[in-house]
Amino acid sequence: MRTFLERVVVAIGALEKGNPRDWLNDGRPDATQLSRLWGATVSASVRDAAWTIAQQRAETPKSVLSRVLKKKGARFLRQVCESRQWSTARSGEDLVRIVAERVTFDEAKALEA
């Protein structure tokens, strides 16, 4: 049986992406909308806890490496490829794809650190 927090995580997944009615300006889900979906009050603190869980579950090596690209640049990812004798590419997004296909989630997180 799912906990209330777990049900809120599921409700977040049911919200329509890009619908301003469902999301706050800062990108978090609207607690009022979540309350309407479940017919029970979802407090801001429960919403925030569920949002953190939902974001963690949505992370993939590719999403982590996209952040690495923004923070450390294409040169860093190119060096990762070269040090492991993987093919390289010109665009940063291609480098993200190449590395994401070859590393685990934990390895991607280590590159982010």
Rank of each mutant, 00 (worst) to 15 (best):
Q56F: 10
R28A: 05
L5D: 09
E82F: 13
T41L: 08
R102M: 07
M1T: 11
G73N: 10
K71W: 08
L24C: 11
I98C: 06
R2S: 14
T104V: 08
L95Y: 06
L65M: 07
R84Q: 15
A11Q: 01
D30P: 00
A89F: 05
S35T: 00
R78A: 05
S66N: 09
L15Q: 08
G39H: 00
V99E: 01
R28T: 07
D94F: 03
A108N: 04
S66F: 02
D26Y: 08
E101Y: 01
F4I: 04
T88V: 15
L77T: 02
L5N: 11
W23H: 10
V96E: 07
A74M: 06
G18T: 13
R97M: 09
T60W: 04
V8C: 02
E59K: 15
T104W: 01
R97K: 13
W51N: 05
G73V: 08
W23M: 11
S87I: 14
Q55M: 12
A40C: 07
L15Y: 02
S87N: 14
S45M: 10
N25D: 13
V42L: 00
S35D: 00
L77F: 09
A58H: 04
R90W: 05
K109W: 07
A31F: 00
A40S: 10
D94R: 14
V80L: 11
A54E: 04
I12F: 00
S45G: 04
P20S: 12
Q79K: 14
F4G: 11
V96H: 02
S45H: 09
R36T: 02
K17W: 07
R84H: 15
Q33C: 05
S87H: 13
P20L: 11
N25M: 11
M1A: 15
D30C: 08
I98W: 03
L95S: 06
A49H: 07
N25C: 06
N19Y: 02
G13W: 00
Q55E: 12
A108Y: 02
K71G: 01
E112T: 01
L5G: 06
V8S: 02
T52R: 13
D22L: 07
R90N: 14
A44F: 10
L69A: 00
